[in-house]
């Protein structure tokens, strides 16, 4: 009896583990599609627009360093790729419906909408995901990647930015946006 139980346990664990590995993730999706035709991929390291400053308190420094980068993947519609758009939106919806992506909010319907979710724990967020799709324009997935991001601490930072205690280095950021505009036009 005991042996049978052990075999069952083993099989059960085996199935669990293998299913884990096959689980689709956004990371895989990004890697698989970043070079595909029709996709636009942009990576923005956080250091690009958040300049480090020695004068900062260590808590702020930590908050800044918890954000690693912003990664964006977009698929604009051009009139011929609607069918593919629909398939991909369905795949992304499926990925994001997994329980580990904790839904924060969603608005809209299947043809036009957006949702925001996160990975990790309430006080230590590893990734924030924004997914928006529009049946006339295309879809966009933006991921804010980091390590143990704390919304409270980050919001404090934002507050300090508004007060001018910390300077945001937007010059490079704007330049990137401009070059993006050029690519699109």
């Amino acid at each position: 009896m005991k042996v049978v139980f052990q075999i069952f346990l083993f099989l059960f664990l085996g199935v669990q583990l293998s299913s884990c590995n096959q689980e689709p993730t956004l990371q895989k999706y990004f890697v698989n599609h970043q070079n595909d035709e029709g996709y636009v991929m942009v990576d923005l390291p956080a250091s690009m627009f958040l300049s480090f400053n020695d004068e900062l308190a260590s808590a702020d420094q930590e908050a800044i360093e918890s954000v690693k980068k912003v990664s964006v993947l977009a698929y604009p519609l051009n009139g011929t790729n609607t069918a593919n758009y629909e398939t991909e939106v369905a795949i992304l919806n499926k990925i994001l419906s997994q329980e580990k992506y904790k839904l924060l909010m969603k608005i809209g319907n299947t043809t036009k909408g957006m949702r925001i979710a996160y990975l990790g724990e309430e006080k230590a967020i590893d990734e924030v995901v924004f997914f928006g799709n529009d049946g006339e324009k295309g879809f966009i997935v933006a991921r804010v990647l980091g390590k143990k991001m704390n919304v409270g601490e980050l919001m404090k930072l934002v507050g300090k930015l508004e007060n001018g205690d910390i300077k945001l280095n937007l010059k490079q950021f704007e330049e990137t946006l401009e070059s993006l505009d050029e690519i699109e036009s």
């Binding site: 909010m105 704390n150 919304v151 409270g152």
Partner: peptide
């Protein structure tokens, strides 16, 4: 398809309460 939804979950409110 015919329904527009707006959902804000508990996760969101928990995060909001993190912010002082």
């Amino acid at each position: 398809k015919e329904v527009s939804a707006m959902v804000i979950t508990q996760n969101m409110f928990k995060l909001l309460s993190e912010i002082d």
